[in-house]
């Protein structure tokens, strides 16, 4: 293995968390997400069991070969997947920045700047990235909480009714979409062999999914 550093389970939880939440907050994909209604929050909560179901295959694999990262088993496919995934993320970020605050700036500026920033972190290795997550994740989670507190007076719970207007099916579909989207973020699975306590991975994953689901904006 190339990487010698180990990260703690706590750090993995935070890595997973910021990995999705950052993008969610920048782009708010829920605007265009099924079930396109006030029942989105139910979808978000229902996504929790979906997450688990979708994560099961990888989890069992991880249990079985906790020493072997997925990238070693299906390298070529994964490399392509990564390239694709990373470029999508960079593009989404750049798209957000050029849409609102920097309309005249070419998108390549943001992509290169973000990519260089990420490359610098990669250069320092996994341990650094893990520690980085430990700083960034609490900041993000607490700012989400703060924003929630600040808008609490404008929250009108009655907007969430009628509950299940069109039945459960669209809501379930929404939950699936949310879970599927997040599970796409599971490219972080390759982190599993670098974790301190592989035994506790089940709990760590459950915490990750809980944070995703309770955040109530489908990630």
């Amino acid at each position: 293995m190339l990487e010698k550093g180990k990260i703690s389970n706590k750090q993995m939880v935070m890595l997973f968390t910021i990995c999705r939440l950052m993008l969610t907050m920048a782009f708010l994909p829920y605007v265009n997400s099924p079930p396109w209604s006030q029942d989105l929050w139910i979808s978000s909560i229902l996504a929790f069991p979906m997450h688990i179901i979708l994560a099961l295959p990888v989890y069992t694999l991880a249990k079985r070969f906790s020493k072997l990262s997925l990238i070693e088993s299906i390298e070529a496919m994964y490399v392509w997947f990564f390239l694709h995934r990373t470029s999508t993320i960079l593009r989404e970020l750049g798209e957000f920045l050029t849409a609102v605050p920097y309309p005249e700036t070419p998108i390549i500026v943001f992509i290169i700047a973000s990519a260089l920033c990420a490359a610098y972190a990669v250069f320092h290795g996994l341990e650094t990235i893990g520690r980085l997550a430990e700083i960034i994740a609490p900041v993000i989670l607490s700012s989400v909480f703060l924003v929630f507190l600040l808008i609490a007076k404008d929250v009108d719970i009655s907007n969430l009714t009628p509950v299940l207007e069109d039945g459960i099916v669209p809501v379930l579909y929404g939950a699936f979409v949310i879970a599927a989207r997040t599970t796409m973020g599971m490219f972080l699975w390759i982190l599993i062999p670098y974790i301190n306590e592989p035994r506790k991975i089940r709990n760590s994953l459950l915490i990750v999914f809980l944070i995703f689901s309770l955040h109530l904006t489908p990630s």
Binding site: K10, Y120, A121, H124, T128, G130, L132
Partner: peptide, 28 residues
């Protein structure tokens, strides 16, 4: 933000005589 991210990355990558520079914040 980019500056802060790079600076933060740099900070967490540092060690002083084997102790992570930003501990006990990172690692917690």
């Amino acid at each position: 933000m980019i500056g802060a991210a790079v600076f933060l990355t740099h900070m967490v990558s540092l060690k002083s005589f084997g102790v992570p520079y930003l501990s006990p914040i990172a690692p917690i």
